[in-house]
Structure formats: structure tokens, C-alpha cells
């Protein structure tokens, strides 16, 4: 006697045109309701298959920018995901295209069991029961956590929680993975495992991090933010050699 849910399918473009940027941001400004400005004139294109590190000091606006990619925050300016302009109508599609993983896995994993958490996305996209179960299995396999379906979230280690958190959005088959500080709070071994995982996932990525060593290892392109602006955007290897730039924005050469 399973409790079923209404069927609702959002039409999803499975394959975007190769030349089309997955994320296109043009002149985005944002200020919080209390008047505190957080983003100025952000312009950023991310192409399919790119792996981009987003670095900068705390309060630079990295998390605020990430919340925009999913339409949770709405600033002034143009933002397109997979060619769809961000508006209320496109919101379900955009949220399926952008897999946003928050920094604290205890906020990301809000269900009692791993299965329920990984199934949350596909369920709310309106997939059938079989499809949901298949997607959960597949996503868990992708993060190397097969067989963890019945485990309780509070029994997991931080490293395991981070992996499951990534699986919760992989199960939605996103076009781009947006991660906020994935390596924060991990011990060296768990961090190493996470780096290997991110290396093997064949998907476009935008990852905010303070971990410049991970950035140099994983992400060919790097975007530096400070005080709400993008101050540099280029090859990671080039930017990491520019010591005066790094120092100016509170970063340390790895």
C-alpha cells in the first residue's frame, strides 16, 4: 500500500547545445532587504563541461551568488541557466538544472534516512516511484555510497554526509553542480576522497572554496570575488602565480 503522489513532469532539456553556456550572468546586482549590498555588476559565463573554482574571503558574496543560480535570491540583472531566463515560470526547470549543495550537510540532509533525502529532489520533480528509486540507486553509486539507503543521516560521518549531500542533487540529473565549501570541516583522508570523487564526476561544476590546493588540482578555471565583485577570472595556474593579486584579496598561495 504505497502512498503515491501526483504525477507531474517538468519538460527538461536533456542535452543543451554545445556552444550555449550552461550559466550566463550579465550585470547582476543584489542588495539584502536590510540595505546591505552583496553583489555588484556580476558577469559570468560557464560553458558546458567547465570546472570552475570560486574563491575569495568570507563575505565576498560567493554564497549569495550561488543562491542566485537557483533562484532562491533574485537580484537585478540578467541570469540564464541552460538558456532559460530566470523567472517564476522557469523556476522548476532551473532548479532541476542546477544542483546546489549547501555548505553544512546537516542543513542539506533534512530527512531521517538517506533514501528519503536522495529521493526528495526526484519526487518533487514528479517522477514515478520506479524512476525515483532507480535515480536514488544511481546517485548513491555515483558518490560511492551504494547500499546506504536505509542508513540514518545522524549516523554518518561528516565525509559521508558530504557525499550523500552531493547525491541528493545528482539524483535530479542536473546540468551543473554548484557546491559551497565542499571540503570544509573534513579530515585529510575524507578531503582526499572528496577530491577524487569530484574529479570523477563528469559534470559542469562551480565550486566555492578556501582550499586553493584543491582548486589547483581540480579546477582549470578560477574566479576570485571580493566585496561583492568579480576581481579576477582566468586560468587557475596563472592566477595562483600572481602573488600580489592573491595577497590583495586575502588569499594564500598553496
Amino acid at each position: 500500500m504505497p502512498i503515491t503522489h501526483e504525477k507531474r513532469n517538468t519538460p527538461l532539456p536533456e542535452n543543451l547545445a554545445e556552444d550555449q553556456p550552461v550559466i550566463a550572468i550579465n550585470n547582476l546586482d543584489f542588495a539584502y532587504p536590510d540595505g546591505h549590498a552583496a553583489l555588484y555588476e556580476i558577469s559570468l559565463d560557464i560553458k558546458k563541461g567547465e570546472k570552475v573554482a570560486l574563491v575569495g574571503p568570507n563575505g565576498a558574496g560567493k554564497s549569495t551568488l550561488m543562491l542566485h543560480l537557483n533562484g532562491i535570491l533574485k537580484g537585478a540583472g540578467e541570469l540564464r541557466v541552460g538558456g532559460f531566463p530566470l523567472n517564476k515560470q522557469n523556476l522548476p526547470v532551473i532548479r532541476a538544472l542546477v544542483g546546489l549543495v549547501f555548505q553544512n550537510p546537516d542543513d542539506q540532509l533534512f530527512s531521517p534516512t538517506v533514501f528519503e533525502d536522495v529521493a526528495f529532489g526526484p519526487l518533487h520533480m514528479g517522477f514515478s516511484e520506479d524512476e525515483v528509486i532507480a535515480r536514488v540507486e544511481e546517485a548513491l553509486a555515483q558518490v560511492d555510497m551504494s547500499g546506504f539507503e536505509k542508513r540514518l543521516s545522524h549516523h554518518l560521518s561528516t565525509g559521508q554526509k558530504k557525499r550523500i549531500a552531493i547525491a541528493t542533487v545528482l539524483s535530479m540529473h542536473p546540468q551543473v553542480l554548484v557546491l559551497d565549501e565542499p571540503s570544509a570541516g573534513l579530515d585529510p583522508r575524507a578531503r582526499r576522497g572528496l577530491i577524487q570523487l569530484l574529479n570523477t564526476l563528469p559534470i559542469t561544476m562551480l565550486v566555492s572554496t578556501h582550499d586553493l590546493r584543491m582548486a589547483s588540482e581540480l579546477f582549470p578555471r578560477m574566479v576570485i570575488m571580493d566585496e561583492g565583485r568579480i576581481v579576477a577570472d582566468g586560468l587557475t595556474s596563472t592566477l595562483l602565480r600572481d602573488e600580489s593579486l592573491l595577497e590583495k584579496h586575502g588569499l594564500e598561495k598553496p
Binding site: M1, P2, I3, H5, E6, L67, N70, I72, P92, R95, A96, V98, L100, F102, N104, D107, Q108, F110, E116, A119, F120, G121, L123, H124, M125, E129, V132, I133, T168, V169, M172
Partner: peptide, 24 residues
């Protein structure tokens, strides 16, 4: 608040769906 954001990001639109696999 943060949990609400994480729910929104995964397609929550104010109506919760669950999949309850326990058959009798």
C-alpha cells in the same frame, strides 16, 4: 531558513511528497 532553502533548491513548492515503500 537554510533548510527551507535546501528544500526549495530541490524542487519543494509548498507541497510535500513522500514515497512510502512499506507494503503490508
Amino acid at each position: 531558513d537554510r533548510i527551507y532553502n535546501a528544500m526549495l533548491a530541490r524542487g519543494y513548492q509548498g507541497h510535500l511528497r513522500t514515497l512510502n515503500r512499506h507494503g503490508i
